[in-house]
């Protein structure tokens, strides 16, 4: 049985977020966020409290697909708790792990719609 660690709802998708997503990079920010960041991010709202840190092996659900968490950066959890901010890199195992990032593997990122749910679940 999987338990939900963190769950949130898409509020808006920035104008340039599509370009980032096409490049395999998904940037999440909790509302409110400065416009400059909102442009490239998927802004979400009403996030739940994180119940435990996300770790490799957990899963990530986004735009109707499931992903496996491979690596978690040192600052990723602090950003997530503090700002609802996290950056996900899909299928880029060769890229250096950045402190604020989580690397996942799975299908190519789709484009989310407002009102959709995004979540992390424990294995």
């Amino acid at each position: 049985m999987s338990t939900t660690l963190w769950k949130t709802t898409v509020a808006s998708v920035g104008g340039d977020a599509g370009d980032m997503i096409d490049a395999g990079v998904l940037i999440l920010f909790g509302d409110p966020v400065p416009q400059a960041l909102a442009d490239i991010s998927v802004v979400h709202t009403d996030a739940s409290t994180l119940t435990r840190p996300v770790r490799p092996g957990d899963s990530f659900e986004f735009a109707g697909a499931a992903y496996t968490v491979d690596e978690v950066g040192d600052h990723a959890m602090i950003n997530l708790i503090d700002l609802g901010h996290i950056v996900l890199y899909v299928n880029q195992p060769d890229q250096k792990l950045l402190p604020g990032a989580i690397k996942v593997s799975g299908p190519v990122f789709g484009t989310p719609a407002s009102g959709e749910t995004i979540s992390f679940s424990g294995a």
Partner: peptide, 14 residues
């Protein structure tokens, strides 16, 4: 206080 992706690039881009 950026972890390497978003804020670090957005503002220099502007």
């Amino acid at each position: 206080n950026c972890g390497g992706t978003a804020r670090i690039g957005v503002y220099p881009k502007k």
